[in-house]
């Protein structure tokens, strides 16, 4: 009897959450399971369920284009998140020092974020074009030996992509950091000044630990955009020169569509899901399961 009343309590709330439940189970769990299952088959354009074991994974990891993609994602991820955090924090600090026309600067720095990655990619493709962009302008000003055309070199092209992404993404981090800085009690500043602690030490040892939650949010937001980066590369370099700026998401989409090899695309997608699960799993456990028990 008691059980029954519990089941029927909050009935309307339970009905309201059914669509979300269907989406969560249907889209996330079933589709992910289906994708993983496909990665063990020889499917081309259409699913074909002959299980062939890890063949697709073996081919994946012996394909230069995939290993280069993974390597690029690591370089891109570390540099992009790193630079966004450092530059975003410095900009936030500068704005927080009560400068004049704060609103204007904030808008300028945040503005790139209003652009999509596709537009960002095209803008920087032109800026980095040796015959049209920055290099050409500086050379015409008289500095003949000036070199700035990262996208033409297989070695440096990925850094060109990082520059474009940092330009686009820093503004948001700055705003997050600024909100964090504004949330800090003014008394702490006074106390630090009374104790005669230098400004930079106040920031590094007192303020940064205090805005840790903001930094974690920023890293999570950026990490998500790193794993799925696709449009920026397509617009800016098309994965070139050669295959120097390929990324995993592009590998998946290209093989899924024009290459007509669903199985290897799903194997690659599964490999992309793995690190996410490995990172998110322990965190979810820590945040929810352990805390609920405590």
């Amino acid at each position: 009897m008691k059980r029954k009343t519990r089941m029927w309590s909050n009935l309307s709330a339970k009905i309201a959450s059914i669509p979300m439940l269907i989406t969560a189970v249907g889209v996330f769990i079933l589709c992910v399971a289906y994708s993983i299952a496909l990665s063990f088959t020889p499917s081309r354009y259409f699913p074909k369920f002959d299980f062939i074991g890890f063949d697709q994974y073996i081919r994946l990891w012996t394909t230069d284009r995939w290993t280069i993609s993974v390597y690029n994602l690591l370089i891109f991820g570390v540099l992009f998140i790193g630079f966004c955090l450092v530059i975003g924090f410095i900009l936030a600090v500068l704005i927080d020092r009560n400068i004049r026309m704060e609103g204007v600067f904030r808008t300028i720095f945040l503005y790139p974020y209003a652009l999509s990655f596709v537009v960002t990619g095209l803008i920087w493709q032109w800026m980095m074009d040796p015959a049209l962009g920055i290099q050409n302008v500086v050379r015409n000003l008289g500095w003949e030996s000036f070199n700035f055309a990262p996208l033409t070199s297989t070695e440096y092209a990925i850094y060109g992509v990082v520059i474009a992404a940092v330009w686009q993404g820093t503004g948001l981090i700055m705003c997050l950091m600024l909100a964090g800085l504004r949330g800090i009690d003014r008394e702490i500043w006074k106390a630090a000044r009374v104790d005669g602690i230098p400004l930079w030490r106040t920031y590094v040892f007192i303020i940064i630990p205090m805005i840790r939650p903001v930094i974690v949010t920023a890293v999570v937001l950026k990490a998500i955009s790193v794993v799925r980066v696709y449009d920026l590369v397509v617009a800016q370099t098309g994965g070139g020169p050669g295959i120097a700026t390929e990324v995993p998401a592009k590998f998946v989409i290209d093989h899924f569509t024009e290459r007509g090899n669903v199985a290897i695309a799903m194997a690659a997608a599964t490999m992309m899901l793995l690190p996410v699960l490995l990172l998110v799993g322990p965190w979810v456990y820590n945040e929810y399961v352990r805390r609920a028990r405590a």
Binding site: T63, H255, E258, G260, N261, I264
Partner: peptide, 13 residues
């Protein structure tokens, strides 16, 4: 298209 694409990747590389 899969094999064709792999050759294109190789040639491009």
């Amino acid at each position: 298209s899969d094999t064709d694409g792999r050759i294109q990747d190789l040639v491009s590389q």
